[in-house]
Amino acid sequence: MAPIVSELMTTHPTVVEVTDSLRSVAQTMATQDVGSLVVADAGAVVGIVTDRDLVVRGLAEGIGLDALVGQLATASVVTVRPDDDIAEVVQIMRDNAVRRVPVVDGDTAVGVVTLGDLAQALDTDSALADISAAPPND
């Protein structure tokens, strides 16, 4: 049987609301040592925001730290379901040129699948799998 998303995803993603400030979102990323967060509106997934978004779309454009994350979040977010086939997810990520996708049950985030997750599961000898499996830098 082909692997499904729920077998590879990172569970319990951190979700921020579209009304959270960039300062709050950046602090959450720093505290949790993550580079992306799922963005929701009243709990329903509407986007994703990365540390790169904060820098390129935020700081570089002069947007202040009190701005709302909804201004920077990638709004045309691609999502998958926990029971989706991994081969389909790979194709979705390729077609949409994304490195991570929120996993949703209905409208609620239940996980995230990243390129690193896929590499560790499907291409264990790759450099990406090795890097993804390494403990984070302190």
Rank of each mutant, 00 (worst) to 15 (best):
M1R: 14
I4F: 11
S6P: 00
L8A: 06
M9Y: 05
M9W: 06
M9D: 02
H12Y: 06
H12N: 15
V16W: 04
E17H: 12
E17I: 01
D20W: 13
S21I: 00
L22H: 02
R23L: 12
S24P: 00
A26W: 04
A26I: 01
Q27I: 08
Q27F: 10
M29E: 01
A30W: 05
D33R: 15
D33K: 15
V34M: 11
G35Q: 07
G35F: 03
G35K: 06
G35Y: 04
S36G: 04
L37N: 01
A40W: 06
A42E: 13
G43K: 10
A44D: 14
A44N: 12
V45Y: 05
V45S: 06
T50P: 01
T50L: 02
T50C: 04
D51G: 02
D51Y: 02
R52M: 05
V55P: 01
V55K: 07
R57L: 08
G58V: 01
L59E: 00
L59R: 05
A60E: 02
G64H: 09
G64P: 10
D66G: 08
A67L: 06
G70P: 00
Q71Y: 11
L72A: 03
A75D: 12
T79S: 07
V80C: 12
R81D: 08
D83V: 07
D83M: 10
D84F: 11
D85M: 11
V90A: 10
V90W: 04
V90F: 05
Q91P: 00
M93G: 01
M93F: 08
R94M: 09
A97D: 15
V98Y: 09
V98K: 09
R99V: 03
P102V: 02
V103E: 06
D105N: 15
D105P: 01
D107A: 14
T108D: 10
A109H: 02
G111M: 05
V113W: 09
L115Y: 04
L115D: 11
G116R: 04
D117L: 04
L118R: 06
L122I: 02
L122V: 02
T124K: 15
S126F: 06
A127Y: 14
L128N: 04
I131T: 11
I131G: 04
I131D: 11
S132C: 07
A133M: 06
P135N: 09
P136A: 09
